[in-house]
């Protein structure tokens, strides 16, 4: 990749795509940090929306259009709604909850910081002179993705649909409450969320 790096300008004159990528990346990272540090549980879910939406924009900048819209549909659309349902059904406190973080927060911070320093060093050292060519044919259009998915990846695709069915059945079985004993020992009405 050195011949590619030779006629690239380097870090000091970034292109517009790079500037946009870095700015959106900073916003995404800030939203992710707020997700894991805020003490209001519902706000954590809402900051997660910002982080996942920022990642969708990053996919768009990397010309992976189909992945970006799938990200918006699945993550921003359904996963966050599921998380909010979970927060509601476990009666999460609405305001600030002082015990959102456990006592080993500083150990966790140390582990995360050490992992970040190590991985950033390794990654920067490894990819210092590699460049992604974003010009030319779009890599992640729905045409290209669908063609590769249904030409080369059909069997994993079908296996994954079976996995989704199994997960659906498992979630229903786990969260189902038996009808005859529902009134005996239940104190909270949290039974119908999956069905």
């Amino acid at each position: 990749m050195n011949h590619v790096a030779a006629h690239h300008p380097g870090f000091l004159s970034p292109t517009g795509v790079e500037i946009t990528f870095v700015l959106v990346g900073l916003a995404t990272l800030g939203a992710a940090l707020l997700t894991v540090t805020t003490r209001q549980l519902v706000h954590a879910a809402l900051w997660l929306v910002v982080a996942l939406g920022g990642l969708a924009v990053e996919y768009l900048l990397l010309t992976a259009e189909f992945i970006a819209w799938v990200q918006v549909l699945i993550y921003v659309g359904s996963v966050v709604v599921l998380l909010l349902f979970g927060l509601m059904l476990t009666k999460a406190p609405i305001g600030r909850s002082p015990d959102a973080d456990s006592e080993n927060r500083w150990v966790a911070l140390g582990v995360a910081a050490a992992a970040a320093v190590t991985l950033v060093w390794v990654v920067v050292d490894a990819f210092r002179s590699t460049w992604v060519d974003l010009h030319g044919v779009v890599q992640g259009s729905s045409h290209a993705t669908g063609e590769s998915l249904f030409r080369h990846w059909v069997l994993p695709f079908e296996a994954l649909s079976v996995l989704l069915l199994a997960a659906l059945v498992g979630a229903i079985v786990l969260s189902r409450r038996d009808g005859e004993s529902a009134g005996a020992g239940s104190t909270s009405g949290t039974g119908k969320e999956k069905s």
Binding site: V36, D101, V120
Partner: peptide, 27 residues
């Protein structure tokens, strides 16, 4: 685009996630 930008962003997001998994108390 420089490949280090998405790689570093992914690393930092992963470490933020590691911190959250280790430090959060609510499941």
């Amino acid at each position: 685009m420089h490949l280090a930008y998405p790689a570093v962003l992914a690393v930092l997001l992963f470490c933020v996630g590691v911190y959250g998994v280790l430090a959060r108390r609510n499941a």
